[in-house]
């Protein structure tokens, strides 16, 4: 999208959403906002992929949704982590670390040789 901002890597959206929800139930808008802020405005979640992903994860049983009242007193759909979602998060986190570590290794070795 815009300059200086990265599209979210394929497959990491779920990880980011799960991680965000680990801090507590949140609605879709809040999730985009929080990811945006915490990543120092680097990561931006597109609505077009966020909502389908949320609903898919709900069907997979990783997160559960219910209607609540938002901070500005409007009805909003809140998502929260389920136990299955917690497990999934741990798995994806571990995967991610392994992957980045591996990528890091490759990069450092390649750097030393040059």
């Amino acid at each position: 999208m815009g300059k200086g901002k990265s599209d979210i890597l394929q497959g990491t959206l779920a990880l980011l959403v799960l991680k965000t929800l680990q801090q507590g139930p949140m609605h879709g808008w809040g999730i985009t906002l929080r990811i945006h802020e915490i990543s120092n405005e680097v990561l931006r979640v597109e609505e077009g992929s966020l909502y389908p992903a949320l609903h898919r994860m709900e069907q997979d049983g990783w997160i559960a949704a219910e209607w609540g009242v938002s901070e500005n007193n409007r009805r909003a759909r809140y998502y929260r982590l389920t136990p299955a979602g917690r497990k999934q998060l741990a798995k994806e986190e571990a995967n991610w670390h392994r992957l980045t570590h591996a990528v890091g290794l490759v990069l450092s070795v390649a750097g030393n040789q040059s």
Partner: peptide, 16 residues
């Protein structure tokens, strides 16, 4: 209508 409401909420917050 629920999906509509959910997205509408998002929209209004962005507008805000």
């Amino acid at each position: 209508s629920e999906i509509d409401e959910e997205l509408q909420y998002h929209l209004s917050r962005m507008e805000e």
